[in-house]
Design a protein around this nucleic acid. Structure first.
Lengths: 216, 216
DNA sequence: TATATTTTTTAGGTTTGCCTAAATTTTAAT
DNA sequence: ATTAAAATTTAGGCAAACCTAAAAAATATA
């Protein structure tokens, strides 16, 4: 499987959640920063290989074999992201681009050994689940802080906004991956929340609570 | 720089030691398992980019800029080999092919962090020196086992032959980096040597003793 | 030295993955 | 329902990196 085929499969997998009845060439090419004509071409090739189901003008859907292939690439991507964040000093916003390259390295042994080396992690640094060797994904309850109620407790697993101003804010407030967030109260009028993190109480605006993901 | 350009530069660098007055397209294409015509094509491109000096029919030589580029790739290759051997459970004969892929990942930060993570190693698992960020290589006093005499003691620091059959042989015989080799005797007629490694005596053929490097 | 052999280059072709522009189909609007 | 707009596909091209076969140059041999 070529670099490009892998990227298309991975993209179709990602876009399928939002487009369950078929990913259009338009959507796909926008996502991959190519042109619709290029997407059509590749989709036809993947269809001939039996990895996707393609009906002209109706978009594309992954077949089981295609989904398994996509999940293998996603597994590699997330293991590499975990490596970069946990073993090397990469920050949240730096890991994606490098993992995007590393995910295409072809070696089953490498990925098995990497998994072992990392201690068989279940989630990547963004909180997304890492598929196992067969492509099984553990579904996880990922919620925004804004969806929690007073008394709830969540573990920070990621963010929705990677602007440096937001990441700086998180840094200043000592909010990081793994931070345990206790919801104390919610202000009715502006939906801001009082929370406790590491024995410190602080107030988060609605904007902030909508951009922080937690595992409950 | 493309994947392919990088491979050509690395190969020219490796072949230059044996062909100091110019690497021919024939030699280069054999090394890379392509055809001479393909080598000519690529060499012309690298010449236009100012990385090599090419005279038709006279072979190719790296310019300084080309050598620096080659050494950067070699640095990446050797750091990845060190990672695979030291951090993951890869054996000598398994690391080369995977490192061959990993060496093309583009990220300065990645390679700096990897270097740090590995503790700034000076040599890779084969005993070859790892160039620094500027492309400087430390030369080392290394001898072949075949150059030693009975009574001499050497510490294994590398090999000359990276064929998987040879590396597998070393693995089976428990000969690895750091192994202390005592020379017991040399057979006059075939130059084979009886040596002691870890309290085990074994016989090494001349071929083998010429491919194992030691620090004395 | 002249010829034969080998090496290298040139010329033209293939595949992959991208592109633009034109044609077609689907969807939306009147 | 018909027409206008948008999305999709087809057709024809381009660049990279490979190839084969033929031409040209260098080297070896008689």
């Amino acid at each position: 499987m070529t670099f490009s085929e892998e990227n298309y499969l991975k993209s179709i997998y990602a876009l399928q959640k939002e487009h369950p009845k078929g990913v259009s060439t338009n959507v796909l090419s926008k996502y991959l920063d190519t042109k619709p004509a290029s997407a059509t071409e590749m989709i036809k090739k993947l269809d001939e290989k039996g990895l996707v189901h393609y009906q002209p003008y109706q978009g594309v859907i992954l077949k089981d074999s295609g989904a398994v292939s996509a999940l293998k690439i996603i597994r590699k991507h997330r293991l590499w992201e975990t490596f970069l964040a946990n073993k090397l000093d990469f920050s949240w916003d730096e890991i994606h681009d490098v993992a995007e390259q590393l995910e295409h390295i072809k070696s089953d042994k490498l990925i098995r050994e990497l998994d072992k080396f990392l201690g068989y992690p279940k989630h990547d640094p963004h909180g997304d689940p890492i598929p196992d060797e067969e492509g099984n994904v553990v579904k996880m309850e990922k919620k925004r802080v804004s969806q929690l109620n007073p008394g709830d407790i969540g573990t920070c697993i990621g963010v929705n906004d990677t602007s440096s101003s937001f990441l700086q804010f998180l840094d200043q407030q000592n909010i990081r991956l793994g931070s345990v967030i206790h919801i104390l109260s919610v202000q009715e009028f502006d939906k801001s929340m009082t929370v406790r993190i590491d024995d410190r109480e602080l107030l988060l605006s609605q904007i902030a609570t909508e951009h922080i993901y937690v595992r409950v």
